[in-house]
Nucleic acid binder design. Structure first.
Length: 664
DNA sequence: GCAATGAGCGTC
DNA sequence: ACGCTCATTGCT
């Protein structure tokens, strides 16, 4: 049949289409005529091809209606790719809201939300959901006074938002699985979003234990296109109630959602790197609101954002009583930089470990328990060696490795000890007398070798980078890891030595202290209770708030402090902040044409380090700050200003991010 | 005075 | 990347 013979469908012949183009000024529906032969397949949510300005482009059919607002004549849909309604109405609404909140486009969000099609997989049938499971036992929540009430609310289908701080050694995947199973038992759906693959495997295993295989689907980006689409389709077709995944799973089209869970919302993996960079916590909070579902933010530590949800009364907090905590928390010892002393023991001097840390490790090994040693991420802080004889440069006070703080632009900043934080203003190599320093990379492996010599008889294992261990067996061992790569020890570690404090706390980042505490607590939560001998040694100044919070195991106090400090400084989440990046010309032009809501504040522009892709190009960043109540208006005006530029086909792009993780 | 040509812009 | 509008050019 030729194109001239196409006839419109008899009913609702107008299709509203979202075209998949990355241009801000085209972020609105375009109307097309549905030809008769596609009448049955052209369902809301299906993928289509349309001729748009002469080109064939992909799109999603948002709706079928009788009349178009468009005055000109409508083109016919070129093709319905398939009748599979991949874009659920709930997700279409959510994606629009998130696009607006982040000054992005609907197409940007749909690219994050809907995986690429795989035709063969789409032809296969997917399983029916099993009958709702029985109510699970949730005894584990009894250790938290408000825990049972929260599960009860979930059981009754009431909307309940909570921020939960897990106890040290908590089997948190089991707790999350119990919450999920409670909601699944009511017939409603659940999404659990975790930062990474390892957490996903743990939560998946816990859910399968309670719910069986049939009602649980794990979604992850690294599955490969066919398997990824297959599992995603099971969810879209209502074949599973419980979805576990990494950040893209926040958009999973689970039927009748009753609960959304974020584990460890401070982990930066929850922030999407692709434009416009939505954060899982925001997406799910919005989605909970829209769907009348519950939200649970859980973690050992608490973010300032979670604290704000508690302070505004939007979420309840679920915490253990202090005496419960005292019984399970490890004893935490902090050593300030002025107090660091090497142990007298010759083996400890050889390992260059502070005496307190050495004693804690030795006691743990003697008790037959593994010891966790958290060291800075490889390449994060390059260590220094003598520029002449290449002997490792050591701290004069504690003999820890010297490193350059800050960035490559430095030179001004003196070398500083990675363990005790003392600056070395006038290095002189004890070996050859040279004053020159050169950068070398000392990773976890090197640290491991040195520790191995100090504790002969205890095996040394490393976890980090490309090789992350899920678990280490009980029994004496030295386990060296970078933050986030801590293996589980079934019986708990006897001790944890947190040697990366200086590297964590010296970052110029707004979130540095919160992040330090989060990483420390994640490691320290794997240690045996203090009454059972569990010790944590953190090498950082004990007057610092995150150190105090760790010693007292009080993440709530720290989050409240952090939020107050940010309120004082006018930083998110108390305000909303937009970062606008571009070449100096483009940025000037953009800011000139930008209308802003009342009370907006422009900071900068300041120069940015060159982008990895184009090293020669000069780039700047301006920050725009505004009260939360005007956040939406700010996003609207930014989106408007971006679309003016794309409509003009300006060659120099502008990048806009709202509430970015890194402000500078 | 008006057809022929091309640059610019919106895109259904 | 097509096709429409509108301005400019060149010829009568």
């Amino acid at each position: 049949m030729g194109k001239g013979e196409r006839l419109p469908a008899a009913q609702r012949s107008v299709a509203r289409i979202c075209v998949d183009l990355p241009l801000a000024h085209l972020d609105r529906p375009f109307d097309y005529r549905v030809p008769e032969q596609f009448d049955a397949d052209a369902v809301p949510g299906c993928r289509v091809r349309v001729r748009f300005a002469g080109q064939l482009v992909d799109g999603y059919l948002l709706d079928r209606v009788d009349e178009s607002e468009h005055k000109g004549k409508l083109a016919f849909l070129e093709r319905v790719v398939s009748a599979e309604p991949v874009l659920a109405p709930e997700i279409a609404t959510l994606a629009r809201l998130i696009a607006d909140r982040y000054a992005g486009t609907l197409a940007d969000i749909l690219r994050l939300a809907i995986p690429p099609r795989h035709a063969r997989v789409e032809k296969q049938d997917t399983p029916e959901p099993p009958a709702p499971p029985a109510m699970p036992d949730a005894e584990g929540w009894r250790r938290y006074p408000r825990g049972p009430a929260y599960l009860d609310a979930l059981h009754q289908g009431r909307q309940a938002h909570a921020v939960w701080q897990a106890l040290p050694l908590e089997d948190w995947p089991a707790r999350l699985a119990e919450a999920a199973a409670t909601v699944a038992a009511t017939g409603r759906g659940v999404i659990l979003v975790v930062p990474d693959h390892r957490d996903l495997a743990r939560v998946h295993a816990a859910c399968v234990t309670i719910l069986g295989e049939g009602d649980v689907v794990a979604l992850a980006a690294e599955l490969g296109p066919a398997e990824r689409y297959r599992r995603w389709l099971i969810v879209r077709r209502g074949g599973a109630r419980v979805v576990i995944g990494t950040r893209a799973a926040a958009f999973a089209p689970v039927a009748e959602p009753g609960l959304f869970v974020v584990w460890d919302d401070g982990d930066d993996l929850h922030a999407e790197p692709r434009t416009p960079g939505p954060h899982v916590r925001d997406v799910l909070a919005q989605r909970a609101h829209q769907a009348g579902a519950s939200l649970l933010l859980g973690g050992f530590a608490r973010t300032a954002e979670a604290q704000l949800l508690v302070d505004t009364g939007w979420a309840h907090e679920i915490l253990a009583a202090r005496d419960t905590l005292r019984a399970v928390a490890p004893r935490v010892i902090s050593i300030g930089e002025d107090d660091v002393q090497l142990a007298r023991d010759p083996a400890a001097r050889a390992a260059r470990l502070p005496g307190v840390a050495f004693e804690a490790a030795r006691a743990a090994l003697a008790a037959g328990a593994p010891v966790l040693i958290q060291v800075p991420r490889r390449g994060y802080v390059p260590a220094l060696a003598c520029g002449q004889c290449r002997a490792p440069a050591r701290c004069r006070r504690c003999a820890g490795p010297l490193a350059l703080p800050g960035h490559a632009d430095g030179g001004a900043a003196p070398a500083t000890c990675r363990w005790c934080g003392v600056a070395e203003a006038a290095f002189r190599c004890p070996n050859c007398g040279s004053r020159k320093l050169r950068a070398v990379v000392i990773g976890a492996r090197r640290t491991a070798e040195e520790l191995g010599r100090a504790f002969p008889g205890a095996p040394v294992r490393t976890s980090g980078g490309a090789e992350v261990l899920a678990e280490v067996p009980d029994g004496p061992a030295m386990v060296v890891c970078t933050p986030g790569a801590e293996p589980l020890a079934p019986g708990g570690y006897g001790a944890a030595l947190l040697l990366d404090g200086w590297a964590l706390l010296s970052r110029a980042d707004l979130r540095a202290t919160e992040e330090a505490l989060r990483r420390w607590m994640t490691a320290a939560a794997l240690v045996r209770p203090g009454p059972a001998g569990g010790r944590v040694v953190v090498i950082a100044e004990s007057a610092l708030a995150p150190v105090q919070a760790l010693v007292r195991w009080d993440p709530v106090w720290h989050a409240a402090q952090e939020l107050a400090a940010r309120a004082e400084l006018g930083f998110p989440p108390v305000t909303r902040m937009a970062a606008v990046d571009g070449t100096p010309n483009a940025l000037n032009d953009f800011l000139d044409g930008l209308r802003l809501p009342d009370g907006a504040d422009i900071l900068g522009p300041v120069p940015l380090p060159p982008a990895p892709g184009s090293p020669g190009e000069e780039r700047e960043r301006a920050l725009i700050r505004i009260g939360r109540e005007n956040g939406r208006a700010l996003a609207t005006m930014l989106a408007e200003a971006v679309s003016v530029r794309t409509a003009r086909k300006e060659p120099e792009p502008i990048r806009v991010r709202l509430d970015p993780l890194e402000l500078v």
